[in-house]
Design a protein around this nucleic acid. Structure first.
Lengths: 175, 175
DNA sequence: CGGTTTCGATTGAGAGTTCAACTAGGGGGT
DNA sequence: ACCCCCTAGTTGAACTCTCAATCGAAACCG
């Protein structure tokens, strides 16, 4: 606090402004695409993806929250909403009576399978099709470096080594 | 639509997951820092920044919305909120009776000046301090490439050539 | 064991965003 | 003038997210 602020120089300001504008425009575009085509916000899509890859297509609430870097409260609200849609159900946890387990239903899996192609196509067209192979590599390294700072423990997906079953997001949902 | 979906390969999935996780964690962190230290969400901070750089520290509502890539509705709600805080006032536009002009107040400017150091420090520590000079360059080019696709007309800040008075975001607010 | 603390999860209120109306003023064209 | 349409901006409802408060269940401890 006693240190003088290290302001950004001209180049850094340019990069920052361009990055933050691109970043919000990109998530906006993906959100709109999913909401329009599949009636689900992007954050809910991510929940379905994570569940679809989990064993038994089910996860404890707090594991799900941790994997998604979202608060317990947010997840609780979200799962309530997904339950209304019939895409997820809550079950009691057999080993811990405080716990709840979220399970992806068949309907939810179908909804995910229907939503995936449009989403992946949007990601490919807006992001990967605009970049060279070297830029894709660079983006991966840059993201990993920043993420290490934001999440030193490496609990978020995409941080540290690729997770064991890490497919997802861009893959066709497994049969 | 008749084309087969071009799914992401393993490397692309990794990059995408890492990027999207980093990106949301970064905006979350910045939002939290600003909300905690300065009682304003990041989107409102951006509005104050844009206003502070405009001539007379004032802009038409729709110009402000365009520059920020946000909807008119969103901006209208936001300005209402900023007006309650005493940071912005609305004035009628002299040349167009439909129009409204948002003007940054002195109080608003002081709030911005107070918020800037903490925000810039957070950006520097989480982003720029984690990257090499080459990576900063690469990030700028990657962001610009994706933004060209998302905003072909180049109306958003950070797209196309650096705007005339483009300082902002990382600079000490001008006296 | 009883008592306290911590943990897993939910709830409700408050704030921000989106979307679809809606109001009102400008700008042609005839 | 008049009519039609487009533009600028606002509004309210529905939805998501955050934060603080809450509650029951586990874990810990003397």
């Amino acid at each position: 606090m006693s240190e003088a602020t290290r302001w950004l120089d001209g180049r850094e300001q340019d990069v920052w402004r361009t990055y933050i504008t691109m970043s919000s425009a990109l998530t906006d575009a993906l959100d709109r695409q999913l909401q329009g085509d599949s009636k689900m916000p992007y954050t809910y899509y991510e929940i379905l993806v994570v569940l679809s890859e989990a064993p038994e297509r089910s996860l404890r609430m707090s594991e799900l929250a941790g994997l998604r870097g979202s608060s317990r409260s947010r997840l609780s609200h979200a799962v309530s909403r997904l339950e209304e849609a019939g895409w997820v159900v809550r079950r009691e946890c057999p080993t811990d009576k405080r716990g709840q387990v979220a399970v992806l239903t068949d309907t939810g899996f179908d909804a995910l399978r229907a939503a995936a192609p449009g989403h992946v196509t949007a990601v490919r067209e807006t992001l990967f099709d605009q970049l060279t192979a070297e830029q894709v590599d660079a983006l991966g390294q840059i993201s990993a470096a920043v993420l290490r700072k934001l999440d030193p423990e490496g609990t978020l997906p995409g941080n540290r080594e690729p997770a064991p079953g890490a497919g997802a997001c861009g893959q066709p949902p497994d049969v």
